[in-house]
Design a protein around this nucleic acid. Structure first.
Lengths: 145, 145
DNA sequence: ATACATGCAAAACATTTGCATAAGA
DNA sequence: TCTTATGCAAATGTTTTGCATGTAT
């Protein structure tokens, strides 16, 4: 995956510019986020990092995740079941489609969303800078059960 | 509010049919959910219940909230900041437009929203039961400052 | 009378924080 | 070397659970 390599490099550059240090743990955590299209929780990231880096602590994962969130490279997703999940592929706000039964999270393509934002701005006069849009429902697989 | 009275009655009937008992605490908690259009957290509900019912415990609020969630009368909503919130006006969740500067909250009318939900269902196969939509931005008044 | 609900306190989780030590620059 | 990151453990905050007592039916 060449583009995620580029993205890794650009994030590392950004971290260096910020005075942050590049540690093996941070590279490992970043690699996991950039390489997985699902939306892992902190605990899931921790388990994966430990596989290659057994001494890594959960606290470090939390700290790194917050760092990445602060610089805008990953997005935190609120879920109804306690542990939050993170999106490292597309850190810009976008809708999430959450199955309330099996907890799967999907990123749907919505052609109408930009029009919706435009409608909000036109009718209210707000300058919209961000949004959070979560749909909750039952996925096709769970509907059959 | 006559319609929320009807809804209260129908929920009480539903609880009785389930073998649940109607306690003052449950009525108080239900009344709070049916009467407020915002999305209160458990803690907020607890504080409100305590005002009229000082002996109520937080555990009871949690248990009642879960009961209501199980019978489908309120919806739990995940937020990125820890404490979950609940929607008691279930059938018609509405978007919020939040000014990040002055914290004003507006309920915009969005004609496109139902089309957006239809688009999600059509493209994903999900049966969408609810959603959460928050826009963040700067309101017209704050833009002038 | 007899379940079921309540309220307390303790437990179970998820997340954050403080601090001594390890390690990048 | 000099600062930042790590890892541990303790602290925080939220939600759940067990159990004796209270209470709706």
């Amino acid at each position: 995956m060449p583009e995620s390599r580029d993205r890794l490099d650009s994030i590392l550059t950004m971290l260096r510019a910020r005075g942050c240090r590049i540690t093996p743990q941070r590279i490992a955590i970043l690699t996991i986020f950039l390489g997985s299209c699902d939306h892992p929780s902190v605990e899931q990231v921790y388990q994966q990092v430990k596989a290659n880096f057994p001494t890594t602590s959960l606290a470090t994962v939390y700290k790194t995740v917050h760092l990445l969130k602060d610089i805008g490279e990953i997005l935190e997703i609120g879920t109804p079941e306690g542990r939050n999940r993170f999106d490292g592929i597309n850190p810009h706000p976008h809708p999430h489609l959450i199955c309330t039964r099996c907890k799967t999270i999907i990123d749907p393509e919505l052609s109408l969303l930009s029009k919706l934002t435009a409608e909000v701005e036109a009718s209210s006069g707000f300058r919209v800078t961000s949004h959070q849009l979560n749909f909750y429902g039952i996925c096709p697989f769970c509907q059959k059960k």
